[in-house]
Design a protein around this nucleic acid. Sequence first.
DNA 1: TTGTATGCGTTATCAC
DNA 2: GTGATAACGCATACAA
Lengths: 348, 348
Amino acid sequence: MAGRRQGGVTMHDVAAIAGVSIKTVSNVINGYPYIRPETKERVEAAIEQLGYRVNITARNLRQGRTGMIGLAVPELSLPYFAELADSVIRAAEPHGVVVLIEQTNAIRERELEVLTSARRHLTDGLIFSPLALGAEDRERFVVDYPMVLLGERIFHGPADHVTMSNVEAARAATRHLVESGRTRIAVIGAHEGETIGTAALRVQGYRQALEDAGLPFDPALLAEAGAWHRSTGAAAMHRLLDAGTEIDAVFGLNDALALGALRALHARGVAVPEDVAVLGFDDVDDAAYASPPLTSVAPGREQIARTAVELLLARVAGTAEGEPVEVYADFELVVRESTAGVHAPARA
Amino acid sequence: MAGRRQGGVTMHDVAAIAGVSIKTVSNVINGYPYIRPETKERVEAAIEQLGYRVNITARNLRQGRTGMIGLAVPELSLPYFAELADSVIRAAEPHGVVVLIEQTNAIRERELEVLTSARRHLTDGLIFSPLALGAEDRERFVVDYPMVLLGERIFHGPADHVTMSNVEAARAATRHLVESGRTRIAVIGAHEGETIGTAALRVQGYRQALEDAGLPFDPALLAEAGAWHRSTGAAAMHRLLDAGTEIDAVFGLNDALALGALRALHARGVAVPEDVAVLGFDDVDDAAYASPPLTSVAPGREQIARTAVELLLARVAGTAEGEPVEVYADFELVVRESTAGVHAPARA
DNA sequence: TTGTATGCGTTATCAC
DNA sequence: GTGATAACGCATACAA
């Protein structure tokens, strides 16, 4: 018995029972309009009786499409990507498309493998959020299937790209801190020497905002954090405090970092927002429930997901052709308690 | 050009270039040992030259297996399920199996749809964590494909089942609170009138622990929360505080509820753990980074994922037959600051 | 060691 | 309106 699973009942069986040809069964299933009602009923009865379900694999082979798209992200344990995956699945649903999720763990080899895997033949297209590959790998992204890139690793690449205005968003976030009287704003999550990627763009926005306000830029306020997790955010915050650097605000380059910093500040008895304001980026669900609730930049996740799915499916359908497009999703600064109040300048 | 994507190069093309038959190409790809080295080289060269990749859909149709399993969960935005999905994907990987995630949003119709969808033909089996369906739907779970159930909605059902000892775990958690001197322990997330499901089991463990300690059970300490989100946890906590119920500990039936309660306590100026201890369930990543860090029950997520995948694949391969099995994963109480210190009884 | 031929379960192209 | 029949791309029994 260990062989015949999944019913094994085919269109032929249905056709035999209904006393019609296999083509007619197919017609009924696919909603072909010109069928005599009684024929249709007979077929439907047979389908019901046998518990028949179409074999999608066979249909896929025949049609050359699978109704699946791939989504490659670092890992679902990271709330941002879990929420992104949620949004992508929801966005694909109305199109009758399901999502195959692949985790790369931000490992270079795995990201390369995603691009060339035989699985690419199993999906109609790929939404890819690389974290390890970058501009220097540009030619690896030249592929023969529809792809939409997310994030800040590749710009003007060979594929459609959905991203957000990181520089502008970070600038607006920093401006918000400046406007509430903060002058010694630390940044957690910097990647030294990097000129491309999320960190670099957000630091750039931060510096622009300082410049806008006529505030000096102090490198001592930049704290490194390779992986953007809470633990690294907390560690970086501790380092800043240990170094005795004067600080009245912290800009975590993502929420995990900011929440980690929040935790460290709390542990050290630093009051938030009274002594130090904290601001994050991504507006994950957690942000609203931190103590105090975390001010954060909402990157328009739903919009990013929807846009990515639509761009991808348009390429799949062949309705979109030509040059890759670049879409910037809208962002919004969500102000909460962690940056509340007007601060008296550190040095009067 | 909007038609021929994905190369469209087949084994026939490779065979033609290599000057061999399609069978030989197939042999090379599938690692058939008895091939003359020079033949193999020629084939590999042709594959390289044409950029050929096997069409998995065709292979699937031929072999009657897809190398995919389905994972149906409420939603990935809930950290517990995001982390579970992560673990399932990782557990499937060494078996060369990928995971198709479907979200049910805990909606009854969608959970039923998962069971009967044509997509079931696309996966070799299903790992299903229902939240809306229950024991009364037992016969809906009688299906003709391999399935492993997760959670606490169905016991002794028609499919393999991986779960945890909710009663024991809740009992151990409550005992921990009792042992640190707490006597007025509120529970957040109860589902009134429910006798089955996660909430009922955990409340049962809570009551057992009270009984063990000779403490009375006070219904006023049970706070309802339909959906187990932070917002509902916070709301329930506020209701308890508003009601003036005397409380020196809170047991959130999951971490989201506990974190919401933590937030509410903080907002009301109640000190944790000094005035009120807080304890959660699931040990999601957030728990360790709350303020204060949240004591929680770790439900053995990795073990659950691994066991589920292995059970499922054994059924798929036909190496496991016979009656459904029921596996209880190990749990562990992770004690953190939110329950620290020994509390002086509320009433001396 | 390699080639030929058949079928997996659909959909599509024609006839009828 | 409906029915034969040929693909879709691969794996495999059977030959050679």
